[in-house]
């Protein structure tokens, strides 16, 4: 078993919460894991990515080779395309549809969606709206994790458990909202795939 995952977004969008949830689940599943993060300058509203590698064998490189990623999980649509050189032919791209516009030359969203649709396996999800529906606009990242979870070789239960651990300190209510968000995202992808 091997899952090479690229997480992408814009500095400040909190992609590391997704990485942390997957990481916790991977540890509970006794998988080998390497997760390279971006700290520093780009966190000020620049493009950020994280390479997350899970395997039942030891992982050598902290970085995923080009063309070998099984999954891109993006919290921002334009950013999802920035990492296509890493995506394998059979890999999945799962992205939020809501743009984060902090540059003057941000392209028309339709053009971005057109490009995303050219990727063989893709899921475009309006995570912001779904997050609001389940009760917290701030749980969008868990919606996207839910939508991606079908392509990660770990059980639904173990990822749910990880989310509980991740948000446990913040109280029961926050845990519930994030679990709901995760399940809503998961259901969205199930609907598309069936």
């Amino acid at each position: 078993m091997k899952n090479d995952i690229i997480l992408s977004g814009v500095g400040g969008q909190g992609i590391l919460s997704i990485a942390a949830a997957i990481g916790l689940a991977a540890v509970a599943n006794e998988l080998f894991l390497k997760q390279s993060e971006v700290h520093g300058m780009s966190q000020r509203g620049g493009d950020v990515q994280s390479h997350l590698r899970l395997s039942d064998k030891p992982v050598s490189s902290d970085l995923i080779p080009h063309g070998k990623a099984d999954l891109i999980i993006s919290v921002e649509p334009m950013e999802s395309l920035r990492y296509l050189p890493w995506l394998s032919g059979e890999g999945w791209l799962v992205t939020n549809s809501n743009p984060f516009i902090n540059i003057p030359d941000y392209p028309p969203v339709e053009d971005i969606i057109t490009e995303i649709k050219k990727v063989k396996n893709h899921i475009i999800i309006d995570a912001d709206t779904i997050a609001k529906e389940v009760g917290s606009a701030r749980s969008g990242n868990m919606v996207i994790l839910g939508a991606s979870s079908w392509f990660i070789d770990m059980s639904e239960g173990s990822i749910r458990e990880a989310i509980k651990n991740l948000f446990g300190k913040k109280g029961e209510e926050i845990v519930e909202v994030n679990l709901k968000a995760f399940m809503a995202g998961r259901a969205y992808t199930a609907g598309i795939r069936s």
């Binding site: 620049g46 080779p65 080009h66 070998k68 334009m78 395309l81 920035r82 296509l84 050189p85 392209p107």
Partner: peptide, 17 residues
């Protein structure tokens, strides 16, 4: 050396700000 698809031209630079 493997390689996925090129980055499409619609993708713009996003420097920190």
């Amino acid at each position: 050396v493997s390689f996925g698809d090129n980055v499409p031209a619609v993708v713009k630079m996003r420097p920190p700000s």
